[in-house]
Design a protein around this nucleic acid. Structure first.
Length: 397
DNA sequence: TTATGTAGAGGCGAGTAGTC
DNA sequence: GACTACTCGCCTCTACATAA
């Protein structure tokens, strides 16, 4: 095994980053480790197993590495609430959703392993992610503060390797993610106790340079601008391996990377594509209409009226690209500014689908980890559309 | 198991600067 | 000048880590 293969990489979905909960740094390490194992196993059973020995290694103090302490930590994870703020897509009502971090756990004495069970709502976010923060657990485990862990998650969502990225968050948004809305009503204390400490620790051990600027309206601080220089890799594998359809056990594929390769390998055949359907614009079927603005719906009809989105394969691809586009721009609808990206990706994927249909005789190697194709082929179009609409409720207000 | 040291968390007040 | 929002410093309490 080379260095890359040893990396314990948790693909932390954007939806999970944008939640609120409060535990200690060590309890959070255990939570991350459970998520990682669930993601690795990915057997659809809502559960995973973790070794006692592995959990012990997450606790720095030798005195605290006991079965009793680990059970205590798991009990706390079973009662601590993870809070989502959602918007009801039907009537725009604000919905507060609270799930426990883990649903339950069992300890097998002879085997010395824990079985961790997750709630379905949470498990779906572990397995079915589109936009995510790649988290190296080795780095996360170095943080002593829970706030550093949570800020690191958030920044990894937006950072790019060796490129300076500036990202602004509203103060309320940050307090929600840190779980300190009630704890630090004054900015003074929030900055002193949470923000500065977290930034300091990330700069020290996080393989990242972070500086912050306050965004003020008159004298009141309303948001924080993060200038992020990330030196940590986001991709832990090379394209050659992907092209060979071989994904090593401890490596992961990223959505962007798979798409990139898919685009490269796609053999476009416009003539063939144009023969897909003779549907006229007037009876053109558009699923998920609610996720377009009036203008982009028109553009979509003009550009894609030749495609039949009642057809299962096309419908799945459309849903997939809508999710990608919305997550990419953090929007609830596909707006004009996002449309070019949406159109390009959708066009590529539709062409690739045609290409792959013609290549079905070539055997596929099943990957260990979830990838976007797996996600969108395990549901029917109706189920997927439902999930898609639900997924958009995770956006911030 | 106990004692000790250290760091994090929280409270409070004095002082500063901008706004009305 | 009063009010507001913030910075800074000091103090105490608590949790955790380490050594004896």
């Amino acid at each position: 095994m080379n260095e890359e293969n040893k990396i314990e990489l948790l693909m932390h979905s954007k939806q999970l980053v944008h939640t609120s909960y409060e535990v200690t740094a060590i309890q959070n390490r255990i939570f991350y480790y459970c998520l990682l194992n669930a993601q690795k196993e990915n057997n659809g059973s809502l559960k995973c197993t973790v070794k006692l020995e592995d959990l012990k290694n997450l606790i720095p103090s030798k005195n605290q590495r006991t079965l009793v302490n680990i059970k205590k930590a798991l009990e706390i994870l079973s009662t601590s609430l993870l809070e989502f703020e959602e918007k009801d897509i039907r009537d725009g009502d604000d919905v507060e959703c609270k799930y426990t971090l883990i649903a339950m756990h069992k300890y097998y004495k002879n085997k010395e392993v824990f079985e961790i069970v997750f709630l379905e709502e949470l498990y779906n976010h572990i397995i079915n992610y589109t936009v995510y923060a790649p988290l190296n657990l080795d780095i996360l485990s170095k943080f002593k503060s829970f706030y550093s862990q949570r800020l690191y998650e958030l920044l990894r969502l937006w950072s790019r390797t060796d490129i300076e990225i500036t990202k602004e968050f509203k103060l309320d948004q940050l307090k929600f993610i840190f779980g300190v809305e009630n704890k630090y009503p004054n900015y003074k204390n929030f900055k002193q106790r949470v923000l500065n400490q977290a930034v300091k620790e990330i700069n020290t051990v996080g393989n990242m340079d972070v500086t912050i600027e306050e965004v003020k309206k008159s004298r009141k601080v309303e948001g924080i601008k993060f200038i992020i220089m990330d030196y940590e890799k986001r991709k832990y594998f090379n394209k050659e391996k992907l092209k060979q359809n071989i994904v090593q056990v401890d490596e992961v594929s990223s959505t962007q990377e798979v798409e990139e390769i898919a685009t490269i390998e796609c053999i476009a055949n416009d003539k063939e594509t144009n023969q897909l359907t003779n549907k006229s614009k007037s009876d053109f079927y558009v699923p998920c209409k609610k996720l377009f603005t009036a203008r982009t719906l028109e553009l979509f009809k003009e550009d894609f009226f030749k495609y039949d989105f009642k057809e299962k394969g096309n419908n799945l691809i459309l849903s997939q690209v809508i999710v990608l586009t919305l997550d990419k721009d953090d929007e609830e609808k596909i707006k004009v500014k996002s449309y070019n990206y949406f159109k390009t990706v959708l066009m590529d994927k539709l062409k690739k689908e045609r290409y792959e249909n013609n290549q079905k005789s070539i055997p596929q190697v099943k990957t260990r980890f979830h990838n976007i194709h797996q996600t969108f082929t395990k549901y029917t179009p109706e189920e997927l559309e439902k999930k898609l609409l639900e997924s958009q409720k995770d956006k911030f207000k």
